[in-house]
């Protein structure tokens, strides 16, 4: 009797669990389905009330047209060189800094760490005007200005970094680009939760602090680093703000997508009523923009699941 009751109970729980999860999954997948349905729909069917999800026929026309409109290859290349590569550099420096805060005692550590928190809390818009100045007249600590005076004008007073690759690589190298504070916090938590014995063994073997970090701590941080890297790539990939403010003329996926609908309106030359026609092409653009991220996600999905289970993602 008890056994049957128990079985029944677990079956009820399973049904409950799955129906909830399926329902919520639908809510999450809805925009994805919308995007896919439209991207491959001939645009004559966009306003056809008889077509809701599955188009009557499929077409690659939207995709191929938008590839041209967006200069997809160029935008993709810019996105890779302006945002993805700097992300790798950014995470490298954040790993160093996170380890520094986790494992060493030094004067002023607490106020410095409070400053890390401050960088997380202050919205980027608060410093954007000043940041633009810093890039436009880049003169770190007055060094260029000094060199200018010493060499009698042989070196420019300041350089303009706006639109160049430096504008994303330099802040990345100094752990100061988009959401760096969050990665520093994550890595600090992770390293702080690691047992100290590992490092002590390395130290006894005569490893210096940096060697210890590189050969003992980094290999252990693989999963957490990949998880953070995935988040960072996604956030940087979609970051309209940096691209629009500092990269400017070089279009990334985020900025070219944001201009796609204006462009389409001009091409079609239509009023607001007719613009549903553009939906299929806009969704094709979104699909193109998101496809590399989806591929990355599917490729690293297992790593992600592993890091959930094993790494001290939360530091508890």
């Amino acid at each position: 009797m008890i056994k049957i009751k128990k079985r029944l109970w677990s079956a009820v729980i399973a049904v409950f669990r799955h129906s909830l999860l399926v329902g919520l999954s639908f809510v999450i997948l809805y925009p994805m389905l919308f995007m896919l349905s439209n991207a491959f729909k001939p645009y004559a069917q966009a306003r056809d009330p008889g077509v809701i999800w599955i188009p009557k026929s499929f077409t690659l026309y939207n995709i191929s047209e938008v590839i041209g409109f967006m200069d997809y290859a160029g935008s993709l290349l810019n996105t890779l060189t302006y945002t993805v590569l700097p992300t790798l550099v950014q995470l490298g420096s954040c790993l160093l800094v996170g380890y520094g805060f986790a494992r060493f005692r030094f004067p002023l550590k607490k106020p410095l760490f409070a400053l890390v928190l401050l960088t997380v809390v202050v919205p980027p818009v608060s410093i954007s005007t000043g940041l633009f100045q810093a890039f436009y007249h880049f003169n770190p600590f007055g060094v260029l200005g000094l060199l200018n005076r010493v060499t009698g004008g042989g070196v420019p007073n300041s350089v303009n970094l706006i639109g160049s690759h430096w504008v994303t690589f330099i802040p990345a190298a100094f752990a100061a680009s988009l959401r760096s504070g969050i990665y520093i916090l994550i890595f600090r938590q992770f390293f702080a939760s690691m047992p100290r014995e590992l490092e002590e063994a390395a130290r006894i073997d005569g490893c210096g602090a940096f060697r210890t970090f590189r050969s003992v701590m980094l290999p252990n941080a693989q999963n957490i680093a990949i998880t953070a890297l995935m988040l960072a790539i996604v956030w940087n990939w979609n970051d309209y703000y940096t691209a629009a403010s500092f990269i400017r003329a070089k279009y990334t996926i985020a900025t070219s997508l944001s201009e796609l609908q204006d462009f389409l309106r001009q091409v079609i030359g239509a009023g607001a009523d007719d613009m549903t026609i553009a939906t299929t092409r806009i969704q094709a653009g979104v699909l193109l923009g998101i496809a590399p991220l989806l591929a990355m996600y599917l490729a690293f999905q297992n790593r992600l699941a592993e890091s959930i289970e094993t790494a001290g993602l939360t530091g508890i």
Partner: peptide
């Protein structure tokens, strides 16, 4: 690295 970045870009 972070200290330099903090001073210059924050």
């Amino acid at each position: 690295p972070w200290v330099i970045g903090l001073l210059l870009f924050f």
